[in-house]
Nucleic acid binder design. Sequence first.
RNA 1: GCGGGCAUAGCUCAGUUGGUUAGAGCAUCAGAUUGUGAUUCUGAGGGUCGUGGGUUCGAGCCCCAUUGCUCGCCCCA
Length: 465
Amino acid sequence: MEKIALPKGTRDFGPEQMAKRQFIIDSIKKVFQKYGFQPLETPAMENLSTLTGKYGEEGDQLLFKILNSGDFLKDASQPNLEARNSKLLTPDISEKGLRYDLTVPFARYVVMNRHEIVFPFRRYQIQPVWRADRPQKGRYREFYQCDADVVGTDSLVCEAEIILMIKDSFKSLGINDYTIKINHRDILSGLAEMIGATGNESSLFVAIDKLDKIGEEKVKEELKARGFNESSLPVLFETLNFQGNIQQKVEWLSKKMTSSEKGKKGLNDLTTVFSLLQTFGSTDEHVELDLALARGLSYYTGCIFEVKINHVAIGSVSGGGRYDNLTAVFDAKEKSSGVGFSFGIDRLYDALEELNAFPKNTTTSTTVLITHLDEGSFPFALKIGQAFREKEICCEIYPDRLKIKKQMEYADRKKIPFVVVVGPEEVQSGLLTVKNMETGNQSKLSLDEVVAMILDFNSKIFKHK
RNA sequence: GCGGGCAUAGCUCAGUUGGUUAGAGCAUCAGAUUGUGAUUCUGAGGGUCGUGGGUUCGAGCCCCAUUGCUCGCCCCA
C-alpha cells in the first residue's frame, strides 16, 4: 500500500472533533464580542521580513519558510550555493513565511491601517499558526490561536477586562478549576534589583519561570550554573516562596522593593488592576500573583498573564500581557501601547477531553432521515424532506434505493434520532411512519404531528445544553 | 539542535529459550430477517511482521543500519 500520511504535527479534524472545536470557538468568540472586540483575519503567509527578528533567534528558526515560486535558484548567490550555507541562502530563495503567531500580523495590520482604524482598537482573531518545532504532547506544528488585543490605550481597565474575559470564557466552557497567574514585567525587574542581578535579568527570569515545573533545587542549580552569586539566592527564594493572597503579597513586596522605582510601578499597576476588578463587581477568585511567572520577555512590558487548568497534564492554555513597543517594530514613530491575550484551542480541547467536560450534544447531526422503499415512494419522500426543512428541521433523504435495513443502519450510525419510512402505504394514506431510534417506538402520524413532535424534541435537547 | 522508547491485520494488541501454515478482540462485508437500526447467532475477506542488510539449517523474535511514530530536554500555545 502506498504510504499516505499527514505532515508531522498536523491533524485532520473529523465531524465529531469539529463539533467540539466549534463549541470551544463559539464560546470564546461570544465572550470576545460581548466585550466589544471585532474580528480580523490576516493571510496565512507574510513577507519573511515581517516575521523575522520578532521572536528572537530561536523563533526565527521555528519559522516555516515558503520556497519562491518558479525558478527559485535563479537569484541564489553563487558563493552561498557553493558553500551550502543554508542560513545565508534562505533570503535568496524564500521571501515568504507562514505566520508564527497572530500578534505580529496584527501589529503589521495596525501600522498599515493606522489612518482608518478607530482607536483604541479591539480585535479578536482565530486562525491557525505554524511553528517548525518538534511535536510532543500538547504541542503541534499547526495549531490555532484565539487572540484578543486592544491597541491604542494604556488603561489598566483592559488588563482587568482580560481577567473578566478569561473568567467568562472558562465559565461557558464549564471549567471551574483553573488558575490565572499574573505578574508584572516591572516587578520582575524589581526582583532583579533586589538581588543585584540587574545586568543579568533575562537569565534570571528564564530560570525562575521553571520553578513550578522543575522545583526549587533545580532552579538553584541552574542559577548557579548561570553564574549567580549563591548569597543572593536566599533573598530571592524568600520572595518567590512568600505565601498569601494578592493583597498580602503586594504589601509584603512593597516593603521589600522600596528602592526599586520599577518594582513600585509594577506593584501600583497590579493594585490598580485588582481594585478595578472589584469595581467591575468581580473578585480575585482564580487569580494568583505568581512572582516566578516570566513569559514573552522579549516584548511584554507590563502585566503578564498565564492560565493553567488545575489537575490536567497540559501546559498553559492561555497567556498574554501588555506590550508597549510592538508596533514600533514596524515603524519607530508608531508607539501605541497594546495589551492582549490568547487561548490555545488545541490545548483547551485536550484539557476538556481529559476532564470529560464537553457537553453531550455538541455534535450537530441530522434530526430526521427519510427512508424510502421503492421508486414510487421517492418523489413523496423528497417532498416530505423539503417540508421538514421549511420548518427548520435538519433533514436528509436517503439518496439510494437500498434495503430498509441498510437505511436504518445509516441512521443508527449517524445517530440520527428520527427515521421516517415512506412506502406505498404512506404514499396512499398520507400518514408518515416515524420511528424514534432511541426508544424504538414507532407510530403513524400526520406530517404536522411529526413536525410538532420533533420541534418539541429539539427544544428539550436545547435546554439540556 | 540533543536524548530515551516503540514499530505484527483498518484499530488495540498477543506471539514462550529462535522451530511447521503468525493469532485474538474490535471494526468491515455477507447471511439468519425481500417494510425496520443498535442487541444475538453464523460465515467471509483482510498480513512483504516499517524498510534494507547480517547471524543461523531455520528470524516476527538476535545483531547492524535506515525510516516513521512517540515521550522528554532547549523553547513554547
